[in-house]
Design a binder for these strands. Structure first.
Lengths: 354, 354
DNA sequence: TTGAAAGCGATACCAG
DNA sequence: CTGGTATCGCTTTCAA
C-alpha cells in the first residue's frame, strides 16, 4: 500500500468480481457462487448467506455472462437474423412477441439485421456467439453448409422461416433434411392464389397483379404473383404483372393507361397499394368494381374506410409466442427430425370493391 | 458398428477450439492466434500461415466470442432495450438502420423487449452482458442508480431516447447529469403543439384532441396532448381530450355525439386515427373541414387519398444511422459530458381537411 | 459447512 | 520466428 510502481490504478473502476464479493464477505469464491446461484447441492449457513448477499449488494456485483457461459460450455443465446421491416411478411408485433417470449423462457436474444453479410459468412458470425438456437426470419438464409457449421458450434436448433418458393433461398436449395434444420413456411403464394381465386369466382378473366417496385416488399411480391398465376392457370383467365411504386404519381400513371390494358380485375399486393390504386382509378374515371374489380391483402382497418369498401385477403398467422415455444422445444429435444410447418392461412374477405 | 456399450458419443460433436487447429497444423495455440488475427507485432512464415489457415478451414473453426471477450476484458456488445412497435415514436425502419449501422461499426446488437423486467432489475440483466453501450429506446428507462451500475460494469455510454416530459420516466427523474448518460429527445409535445397551433391559426377555438385508448400509442399520446394544451393556453381556446379506440365502432360512437361536443376542430393523434375519425364524421353528416377542421400527424401517404385530403404534421427525425454514429462517438470518447439532443422537428402540412 | 484448485477458450507477454 | 504460460471470471468437483 505504500508504493505503487504502476502509474496508479485510478480507484480501480472496473466491475467487481465474485472474488471481490468473497473478500468483502470473508468467504471463498466458491461459497459466493453457491449462495448467489441458490445451489441446492450444498448447505450454507444462513449467516453466511446473508453476509454474501449483503456484500454483493454493497459492491453492486453483477455476474459476468461471458465467463459463466464459457465455464458452462453452453449459452442461452438465440440469434435472430431478421430485418425489422420484415413486418411485411410477419404480422405486426410478431418479432416483439418472439423476443418477449424467448426472454420469458430465459433466452438472450441477439438480433441481426440481414445487411452486410452473406451466406456462410453470416453463419460464421452467428456461430461465434455459440447460440443455442438460430431463428432466421429475414432474407439471409443459411446454406446447408452454414447449418452444419452452426450445429457443430453448439446450436441445437436452426429454424428457418420461409415465404414459400419462387426465389426462396434456403428452403429451395436443400436445407430441409439437414439435421436440426426446421422450416417454418408462411407461403406467400397462397395470398395471391386466394385473391385471384376470389376474382375468378366473381367471373373476372383479365386480371392485373400489382407488384411493388420497392425492393423490400418486392421479395414477397414474387411468390404472391406466382400464386396468382397458379390460380389462373388452366382457367382461361390471363394475368398481367403491373409494376407500381408506392407513390401517387406512379399510381396515377398506371391508372392513366388503364383502359388500354383491357383488364376487368386487379389484385394489388396488399391493402396499402390497393388503396393507392383505387384512388387513382377513381380519379381517372374508372368505376370500381363495375369496370374493374379490386382486391388487396392484409385486411387493414383503413381499407374499410374507402368507398367502395376494399375487399381483401385476411391472413391468419402464428404468433411470435408460438414460434418461441417451437424453438424452445427444438432446443430441449435436439433429436427431433427436421420439420416443415405451414403457418399461415389466407381467407378472402369480400366487401364492395370485388 | 457392432457394439455400442455407451450411448455412443456421436463423433464428439463439440466445436473445434484453437487447440484443435494448433494440433492439426502442428504448431502452438499462440501461433494459431497470431495467424488468425493477423497480428502485426509478430512475424510468421508464410508456410506456417498457410498450414494454420488450412487447418482452421478444414475443421470449420470459429472463434469463441465469449472466451475472447473474457480475455479482452471488454465486449463490442450494444444492448438496445426497445419496445414493441416503438414504430409509433420512431420512424419506420429506424431500428433496422440502427442495427445495420452498428453492425457495420463492428458492434454486436442485443435487443431486449421491455416486458418482464423493471428498472434496476433490467439494468442488472443488461449489465451481465458487459455491454460497451446501452441505447434505451423504449419505456424501460434506467434510474440513475441503474446507469451507475451499467457504467461500473464497463458501459462506456448509456443513451436514452425520450419522448419529452409528461410522464417520462428517465429524463424527468434525474438521469441527466449522470456521467455518461446522454439523452436524445424526440419531444412528442411539439407534435401536439404544432397541430393545435395550425388549427388556432385557422381561427378555430374549440379543439378536440383524440387520444388512443390502446396502451401502446397511449404513452406517446400523453405528451402530444400536453403539447396541444400548451399551445392553446392563453389563447382563449379550449381543448377537450377525446378517448377513442382504433376501431370503426369507437369512431362511430364518438362521431355520433359530435355535435353535442360543440367543437370546431380536432387534432387526432396521428393520421391513422384521423382517417378513421374523418370517415366516421362524414358518415355522421359532419362536414369536414367546414363544420370541424381535422388534422393528423405523420404524413401518411394514405391520408392524401381521402377527400378532403388530410392535413397533417410532418415529422422529420434523425435516422438510425445518425444515432449509431452518436453511440460510436460516445463509446470512443467516454469523457464526453452528458448531452441532451433535440432530434425531431414538426412541421404543419396544410391540405384540405384543416 | 467451507476452501482450494482445476479448468472453459483465447490472447499476449516473455523466453527460447 | 515460435512455444510455453499466466490470465480473464466463474462453476464445480474433491478434500478438509
Amino acid at each position: 500500500m505504500s508504493q505503487q510502481p504502476p502509474p496508479e490504478p485510478p480507484v480501480n473502476r472496473s466491475a467487481p468480481t465474485s472474488a471481490d464479493v468473497a473478500r468483502l464477505a470473508g468467504v471463498s469464491r466458491a461459497t459466493v457462487s453457491y449462495v448467489l446461484n441458490n445451489s441446492a447441492s450444498v448447505r450454507i449457513s444462513d449467516r453466511t448467506r446473508h453476509r454474501v448477499r449483503a456484500a454483493a449488494e454493497e459492491l453492486g456485483y453483477v455476474p459476468h455472462a461471458a465467463a459463466r457461459s464459457l465455464r458452462a460450455g453452453r449459452t442461452r443465446t438465440v440469434v435472430v437474423p431478421a430485418p425489422r421491416q420484415s413486418a411485411g411478411a410477419l404480422p405486426s408485433g410478431f418479432l416483439d412477441e418472439l423476443h418477449a417470449e424467448l426472454r420469458l423462457l430465459d433466452y438472450t436474444v441477439v438480433q441481426y439485421g440481414s445487411l452486410g453479410l452473406d451466406g456462410d459468412e453470416a453463419a460464421r458470425a452467428w456461430a461465434e456467439l455459440r447460440p443455442v438456437a438460430v431463428v432466421c426470419l429475414g432474407e439471409a438464409q443459411p446454406t446447408p453448409h452454414g447449418v452444419m457449421l452452426l450445429r457443430r458450434s453448439g446450436a441445437r436448433a436452426v429454424v428457418t422461416l420461409g415465404t414459400g418458393g419462387a426465389g426462396e433461398a434456403g428452403a429451395a436449395e436443400g436445407i430441409e433434411g439437414v439435421e436440426g434444420a426446421h422450416t417454418l413456411v408462411m407461403d406467400q403464394r397462397r395470398i395471391g392464389a386466394c385473391a385471384v381465386g376470389h376474382l375468378l369466382h366473381r367471373g373476372r378473366r383479365a386480371i392485373g397483379v400489382v407488384l411493388p417496385e420497392e425492393p423490400g416488399p418486392g421479395s414477397l411480391a414474387r411468390p404472391r404473383l406466382a400464386g396468382a398465376r397458379g390460380a389462373a392457370a388452366g382457367t382461361g383467365a390471363r394475368t398481367v404483372p403491373l409494376p407500381m411504386a408506392y407513390e401517387e404519381q406512379s399510381a396515377a400513371a398506371l391508372a392513366g393507361r388503364w383502359r388500354s390494358l383491357g383488364l376487368d380485375a386487379v389484385y394489388a399486393y396488399d391493402d396499402a397499394y390497393a388503396m393507392l390504386l383505387m384512388r387513382a382509378l377513381q380519379d381517372a374515371g374508372v368505376d370500381v368494381p363495375r369496370e374493374t374489380a379490386l382486391i388487396g391483402a392484409g385486411d387493414l382497418l383503413l381499407g374499410r374506410l374507402l368507398r367502395p369498401r376494399l375487399s381483401t385477403v385476411r391472413l391468419d398467422t402464428m404468433g411470435g409466442g408460438t414460434l418461441a415455444a417451437l424453438v424452445d422445444r427444438a432446443v430441449r429435444e435436439p433429436g427431433l427430425p427436421p420439420a416443415r410447418y405451414e403457418l399461415m392461412t389466407a381467407l378472402p374477405v369480400p366487401r364492395e370493391s370485388a
